[in-house]
Design a protein around this nucleic acid. Structure first.
Length: 316
DNA sequence: CTGTGTTTACGGATAA
DNA sequence: TTATCCGTAAACACAG
């Protein structure tokens, strides 16, 4: 495999869409949320390709942030200097890349039906505080998922569970790590995190709300080598030596499937929604509270897309 | 001013 | 083929 000291396939355009790159960056952060500048950094740190034409792709990325409902904006705390808000993944965006391709999702995660419904103005009345508290102490169900179209996504598992499933071959213990495998790029311990409904806990933690120990303890325990800015895994894809070429091709009968973008599958079993627990071998059940947290309108917690919360509400 | 965030528009690619 | 998704450009508003 060619290893031209400098430029090789490492500066090829990564087989990820901005959405997946962004999701990756966000997931890699301990708080599960990042301001644009950090997202850029994450991407540039490990994908040389994006060290150029920054003006162009960053504009595209920002476009994706505000245009796609899978990303939610979270206001900065008053005590946190810096520009721009934090961006996180929508709790219900689920398995956006279940089709196996990080280039194109099978279906876009879109919040619908909010147009003329009361949902638009109603939920906004709540403050973060009330929501956080509410979410924390409520464990019963809340029927409606804010603005979810019928055919829209339905899962509730961690948004990166899909990444996980592609890091291992047909079902092996998964030792082969592909250069572009998310697991390789951001870490490999997110399973437990995902299962804990971290996003919400993280957001609340971020906002200064008390987070249950069980959840809180996990907030900062992951991605040991992710946040690190060192170069080792950054500039290139050191641990791996796989020709990029192979990444774009599907290997039919191959067991050690590349943990990468492959043509979209025919379409699994229709309507077969992978269950949360099913996706995570080690996890047989979720803390009911956590499940509830993820299930209920965490949507409302961060409020619906276009409005973004009034920082004022955070004060009180 | 620069960095963010929102929005509209269009063309290319590809899933359905 | 059509419907969507994605990337890009670009206009514009806003905040620090």
């Amino acid at each position: 495999m060619p290893r031209p000291g400098k430029n090789s396939y490492s500066d090829q355009k990564p087989p990820y869409s901005y959405i997946s790159l962004t999701a990756m960056a966000i997931q890699s952060s301990s708080e599960k949320m990042l301001p644009p500048s950090d997202i850029y950094k994450f991407i540039m740190d490990r994908f040389p390709y994006y060290r150029e034409n920054t003006q162009r792709w960053q504009n595209s990325l920002r476009h994706n942030l505000s245009f796609n409902d899978c990303f939610i904006k979270i206001p900065r705390r008053p005590d946190q200097p810096g520009k721009g808000s934090f961006w996180a993944l929508h709790p219900d965006c689920g398995d956006m890349f279940e089709n196996g391709s990080f280039l194109r999702r099978r279906k876009r995660f879109k919040l619908l039906g909010v147009e003329h419904s009361a949902c638009k103005s109603g939920p906004v009345l709540h403050s973060y505080h009330s929501h956080a508290q509410h979410a924390l102490h409520q464990s019963h169900h809340h029927s409606g998922k804010l603005g979810m179209g019928h055919q829209e996504y339905l899962g509730t598992m961690g948004r990166l569970s899909h990444f996980q499933s592609y890091t291992l071959g047909g079902g092996q213990s998964g030792s082969f790590k592909h250069p572009f495998a998310i697991e390789s790029l951001i870490g490999r311990d997110y399973k437990g995190v995902m299962a804990s409904g971290l996003p919400i806990a993280s957001v609340m933690h971020h906002l200064g709300y008390p987070v249950p120990a069980q959840l809180g303890s996990m907030v900062n325990s992951v991605w040991p080598h992710v946040g690190m800015l060192s170069e080792p895994v950054s500039s290139e894809y050191p641990p791996f030596n796989v020709a990029v070429k192979g990444l774009y091709h599907h290997h039919p009968g191959t067991q050690s499937m590349p943990a990468v973008p492959v043509p979209i599958k025919p379409t699994p079993t229709l309507g077969a929604v992978p269950s949360l627990t099913g996706m995570m071998p080690g996890v047989t059940q979720l803390c009911p509270r956590t499940a509830a947290l993820m299930e209920r309108d965490a949507t409302a917690l961060v409020e619906e897309k276009s409005g973004s919360l009034h920082p004022a509400l955070l004060q009180s």
